[in-house]
Amino acid sequence: MKSFLFALFLLYSILNLSAQQQNDSIAALYKKQNEVKLNAVMLLAGAFEASYERNLNEESSLGVSFFTPYDNENLDANINYYISPYYRIFFGKKYAAGFFVEGFAMLNSIDREYGVQDSGGFYTYEEESVTDFALGFGLGGKWVSKNGFVFELTGGIGRNLFQNDYDTTIVGKFGFNLGYRF
């Protein structure tokens, strides 16, 4: 009787271990920690925006985005670059996916045009590069496929903190990001 109970216990343990390994491998697909993404809308508009994101747990992540234009004629903006770290809180059922709220900071540089009046009363326009720091928030959604492909829609708005005497106090971020989780 003891050998029968021992054999039954051993069989149960093996089956339980096998089921646990299968569930762990499925869960591992969603619990990968790193993501790289490109903003497809900005690529079409004439700018390059890449992001790296690190998933901290199933509900939060940290990331950083880098933006720079490569075709100023098609991109109707005066921005030179921005570097934007962010923190996200997710409200979805999957690991670090679904609806999210984001808080971000942004170090940005823009070209500002201003008028200078000469001695004859005529205005000439000059351009200068202004660097500023902004804080803001955003909303979005993230979807992750079983093989690690990431699709993300995001938008956010912030305010520059230091150069408030110019017309560039409000900054924005938006994207249609495609990437990979590994």
Score class of each variant (00 low, 15 high):
residue 1 M to H: 10
residue 4 F to E: 15
residue 7 A to E: 12
residue 10 L to T: 09
residue 15 L to A: 12
residue 17 L to H: 13
residue 20 Q to H: 12
residue 20 Q to T: 14
residue 25 S to Q: 14
residue 27 A to C: 08
residue 29 L to A: 14
residue 34 N to Q: 09
residue 34 N to G: 01
residue 44 L to Q: 07
residue 48 F to V: 13
residue 50 A to R: 04
residue 53 E to W: 02
residue 56 L to Y: 08
residue 56 L to E: 08
residue 62 L to T: 08
residue 69 P to Y: 03
residue 70 Y to F: 15
residue 77 A to W: 11
residue 78 N to E: 12
residue 81 Y to H: 03
residue 83 I to R: 06
residue 84 S to M: 04
residue 84 S to Y: 01
residue 85 P to V: 05
residue 85 P to C: 10
residue 87 Y to L: 03
residue 87 Y to I: 01
residue 95 Y to P: 04
residue 101 V to T: 15
residue 115 G to A: 15
residue 117 Q to D: 11
residue 118 D to M: 02
residue 122 F to K: 10
residue 123 Y to G: 02
residue 127 E to Y: 10
residue 128 E to P: 02
residue 132 D to S: 01
residue 134 A to W: 08
residue 134 A to H: 04
residue 139 L to S: 00
residue 145 S to Y: 14
residue 145 S to E: 15
residue 152 E to P: 02
residue 153 L to T: 01
residue 155 G to K: 05
residue 157 I to N: 03
residue 159 R to F: 12
residue 159 R to Y: 12
residue 160 N to C: 05
residue 160 N to A: 01
residue 162 F to Q: 06
residue 163 Q to T: 10
residue 164 N to K: 06
residue 166 Y to K: 07
residue 168 T to L: 08
residue 169 T to V: 09
residue 169 T to P: 07
residue 181 R to D: 00
residue 182 F to G: 03
